[in-house]
């Protein structure tokens, strides 16, 4: 089984090297989608031996993930893992995410920050917000309440699932969109615990709490 990691990266030159170093032992190939970076992201990633796909201009994390997923399919991937570039996701958890797929137990695996492994240093405001997001997802988006993490970026899916899940949200709303598409399809899915590191750096660059409103707006107007 060929396992490909897809890592969208926008101006991550300082961190992409470390992330790739951590991810490579667990996968057969790494695809970095340089989402129109203005720094050395592509160069650093190339030195680490990753396949580089470059967006001519910045299109957002969702768009980059989709491009990377399409690229993995072209390269013949059997399993595709989505990982953030900034080192938030602990790469050593990749095996536990792809294991259920390898065993043929499921088609899609979502990493959840709320299944036991305590998120290190998750700010309380983020916790409250994610709880609200979960309610929004179940009430408005029709995503089952069983899903414990509404906005997790670490997930794995089979080739067949990747071909089926047609996510079109370019920016941050893709998390909820993928959850919706998967949970409403006939694909089998489950959540496994993951751990996320919140550093001051990743919090500064990552999503702001106010982005929640943007995500809601994108989900509501971004029809098919």
């Amino acid at each position: 089984m060929k396992v490909y990691a897809v890592i969208p990266a926008y101006n991550e030159a300082s961190r992409i090297g470390g992330t790739l170093f951590g991810v490579r032992p667990f996968v057969d190939g790494v695809i970095v989608v340089d989402d129109g970076s203005t720094d050395e992201t592509a160069g650093v990633a190339r030195e680490s031996g990753a396949t580089i796909i470059r967006h001519a201009i910045n299109r957002g994390q969702g768009a980059a993930l989709r491009t990377g997923t399409d690229a993995a399919l072209r390269l013949g991937a059997d399993v595709i893992v989505h990982v953030d570039a900034d080192g938030q996701h602990d790469p050593s958890l990749i095996p536990s995410i792809i294991q259920p797929i390898k065993e043929g137990k499921t088609d899609v695996v979502f990493g959840s920050r709320f299944l036991g492994l305590l998120p290190s240093d998750m700010p309380w405001s983020r916790r409250v917000l994610l709880r609200a997001a979960r309610s929004f997802n179940s009430l408005v988006m029709g995503i089952p309440r069983r899903v414990t993490d509404p906005q997790s970026g670490m997930r794995a899916m089979t080739r067949e699932a990747a071909l089926l899940v047609d996510f079109r949200q370019d920016r941050m709303a893709h998390c909820s969109e993928i959850l919706r598409l998967v949970t409403r399809s006939r694909l089998r899915w489950l959540e496994v615990p993951i751990r996320v590191r919140y550093t001051s750096e990743s919090l500064a660059k990552g999503q702001r709490s106010a982005d929640a409103l943007k995500i809601v707006w994108q989900l509501l107007i971004g029809g098919r």
Binding site: T51, I53, H55, A56, A63, R66, R74, L75, D78
Partner: peptide
């Protein structure tokens, strides 16, 4: 986005699965 994606994947060889 579709245009940017098409351009980005242009040179990637399609491998038989």
């Amino acid at each position: 986005t579709d245009v940017v994606r098409k351009d980005a994947l242009k040179e990637l060889p399609e491998q038989k699965h």
